[in-house]
Amino acid sequence: MHWCRIDPVQEVGALLATGSDARARVAACFAEKSALFHALPVGHGEDWVAIFAAPLEGERDPVLPRLAGSIPLYRVVSGWWFPVGTRLDVPDHARAAILAELLDRHDFGLPAIVIPRMGLDGRGREADIYCCGNPVPFSDSELAAPEDRA
């Protein structure tokens, strides 16, 4: 199984920040932004945070803040997120089945973010998977300042 690079024309639906300072960076970013962004669902681990796009109340189009140094993601199939500009190098009709098999084999839950480790040739056989559990609004998450939590 390979991942490969493609034109980055997919619709951004989430952002992933990684690194030991990821939580602090996301918290600082949200603190400076409109409170309207605080309703966006986030999932996080020790050294990563995922922010998922969602529409504002009463609107249809999802919104997403800018976050320096983050990886933009797109939804491949329900629950699966890949970096914009990458894809699993298999035929379309086989993709969902292969991802389901991956889920079974490695025993993790969705939503899951797959970050391929790309070689210089724009292809990769290995990937890091971030399991997001149940994303909650930023304002309800541990990332929000205690006084801002809903």
Binding site: E32, K33, R66, A68, S70, I71
Partner: peptide, 17 residues
Amino acid sequence: GPAAAGAAAEDGPREPA
């Protein structure tokens, strides 16, 4: 907009590893 707009623009999105 909020001050973050300028800060976020300092560098673009990070490339996947």
